[in-house]
Design a protein around this nucleic acid. Structure first.
Lengths: 221, 221
DNA sequence: GCGTTTTAAAGTGTCGACACTTCTTAGGCC
DNA sequence: GGCCTAAGAAGTGTCGACACTTTAAAACGC
């Protein structure tokens, strides 16, 4: 079955403060609490998380490899700014990974998978805000990548997700009210996607996902 | 031009002992000095690299995110074992990324790029060993990914490269002498690849690369 | 001799310390 | 006032220390 489950080395995260700080700090960056470009000093963060510098340092290293923070030549750490040029890179990489994921997910798609995705799309039609629609959108894409059964695909994809979400929050800050994602087009694209995932060929699923992700690049910049 | 160069945030690596240990330890793992599954104790490594535990710890975190080492639930660190199931995941992910890279590299391919790849293929025909052919092969694929101009594609691809090379070293240990990669087929596939990269359409380049990488999966297991 | 329990060795998680570097700000000079 | 300089503050890189946990070995009983 394609239903989400680990297939290879299950990557058990260490159960220490470093991973806790990692997850909390990531959430705070992606949610926009730390604006892009702001400095992340280890002593300050250590105090913020009521711990010492060591766990903070480890978390920063992980976040750097996720592309959410950058180390400057001087050693200082900043929240990475994700510009339009970066968005292009992100979406191209997403298209590559998710297209393959759709191909694999199609291979043994189940009716349970169809139910999950259909329910998600149904919720999209009722979404009241840009943020909610985006959350449902990412949930859906995450589900497909998970359904690929390829854990490495998922691990490569996740950093792109965080970077994309960080980008969305930033443009949402700027255009706030007068900005709306074209809901109907999104829903239509997802319906098409579900159709090929459940009853199309693997090649069709890959192609539809590729076009869908690359098309999303155009309205998000 | 598609010639290798940084396009987005240039990811300046920190100039500290942690990165030095990271690079050295990665080389030693990929070269097979530390066999798969062997324990990596921080104090031992610290002594090995003539430093303290802190830089070693940072390096291990980076290597874990590259998929070369794993952290057990008890906290111990081991060199990750890459089995046939993992190879499948690796090659599927490689196919996804490299296919997109070929598509982008084709977009503004130059004669200089053709020269580089042609020279590489020429060397492949003269390769005297499995190891040398594999090195040339990875150099070629690395070049194409770099030519995509998408730095994120490259950063996602690199860990797959290390994992793949670690796998190759392991199977080479076992089958040592009586194992040879089908050289002529590899060279022919690469000639076809060069042809579509230089004078085919982006879609053709993507398709040829996809087939080439996925086909490689079959002989390497 | 074999299995169980106790004890020592080894390893990780976290912390504070300190040297060195980088940034900031206050002071002096014109 | 504007610019350069020089303390001072803040931050990073690295280390050793120590508590706690896990592993390994030795001791013990049978």
């Amino acid at each position: 079955m394609a239903t989400p489950q680990a297939q290879s080395s299950p990557r058990a995260p260490r159960n220490n403060r470093a991973t806790a700080v990692h997850l909390r700090l990531r959430k705070e960056i992606v949610s926009g609490l730390f604006p892009q470009g702001s400095a992340l000093a280890e002593p300050t963060l250590a105090e913020h998380f009521h711990t010492s510098r060591a766990p903070v340092r480890e978390a920063l290293i992980a976040l750097e490899r996720e592309g959410l923070v950058t180390f400057e030549k001087t050693g200082r750490t900043r929240v990475r700014t994700i510009a339009a040029k970066d968005l292009r890179e992100i979406m191209e990489a997403r298209a590559a990974l998710e297209s393959m994921a759709a191909r694999l997910a199609n291979w043994n798609w189940t009716t349970a998978d169809t139910d999950f995705v259909a329910k998600n799309i149904e919720q999209q039609t009722k979404a009241g805000s840009f943020a909610e629609l985006s959350r449902l959108d990412m949930d859906l894409h995450h589900y497909v990548v998970t359904c690929s059964g390829n854990l490495r695909l998922l691990q490569l994809w996740e950093p792109l997700r965080w970077q994309y979400e960080a980008y969305l929050v930033e443009i949402f800050k700027r255009r706030s009210a007068d900005y709306y994602r074209p809901e109907t087009e999104t829903v239509l694209a997802h319906r098409k996607l579900l159709q090929v995932l459940s009853s199309g060929t693997p090649a069709e699923a890959a192609q539809v996902m590729m076009d869908h992700v690359l098309f999303n690049m155009s309205w998000a910049d």
